[in-house]
Amino acid sequence: MMDKLSNLPSAIADIVRNEDSVVLGACLEGNIPFCATYELIRQGKRNLTMIAPISDASTDMLIGAGCVAGLTGAWVGNVSGGLGHNYRRAAEKSMPHPIRIHDYSNFTLAAALMAGAYGIPYMPVRSILGSDILASNPEFKQTTNPFTAEHEPVVLVPPLKADVAILPVQRSDRAGNCHLWGSSGVTTEAAIGAARIIVVADEIVEAEIIASDPSRVPFPGWQVSAVCQVPAGCHPSPMAGRWRRDNAFLNDYHLRSREVEGFQAWLKEWVFDVPDHAAYRAKLGERLDALQIKGWAPSAPVNYASE
């Protein structure tokens, strides 16, 4: 099989282009590839459209760093602190520049990605009827169900496909066949619809390990463009069975990003003065060690024998 192993800076440089739409983490508050957030900022990517149901403070960081022109999402803020200060500055004061906001709810965003993934022309949903999301995002259309005699309003959600999906997993082989366990958010729909996928693997394993349990594969490995091994690449967000959430880190970010100057100092300390993720892990030091899950609660093996 094709060896797609790359390092994160090269993968980001080669695969993410200015103007791209990017799914950066698809599991809501967990499994967010902050390592890629930092690298996008370091490389000065511009005019990205971020697609995310939540993605915690990652989106706020990218907005503040000037990487984002558009936002297609259900929620942008800081799960620990509440409001996203950079998001507010961009939306309210066009700082550092204006962003286009395409409002979604979680379910409608998942429906849009599903339509994009499977070539469904549009998804009819009952959600957001009566909501002003219909008014502030003209991408949605309201119509009536053609299959019922009774007047039944439905919302049509257009398909959504990302240029790039950057998706953390617990383990992957070198060809991009991977395992993800725990809740998966919109991972499958986001990956299948994306033109290019970067897998950010906490661990690289032999192909046999992935093949031993194909039910745990979240998306087709053959659609993957690159695989990067980044242990704790989702820090400060959690990953099932691997890493706990660094809540103090996100609280600190929330406090320091309240003013532009504080955000710039935070960015210098944690992004620009840190050359790569190995240096970031070294800077976290014992703190990262304390977040690592040391316990062992394995699932029972399942049998795939064929005779």
Partner: peptide
Amino acid sequence: TSYIGGHTRMKVKLPGSGGAADIAGM
């Protein structure tokens, strides 16, 4: 949970729906 002041005359940008609109509707 989206826009204080409404989306055309926003005073404060709040984080948005998340799944709240879906839960409230359905």
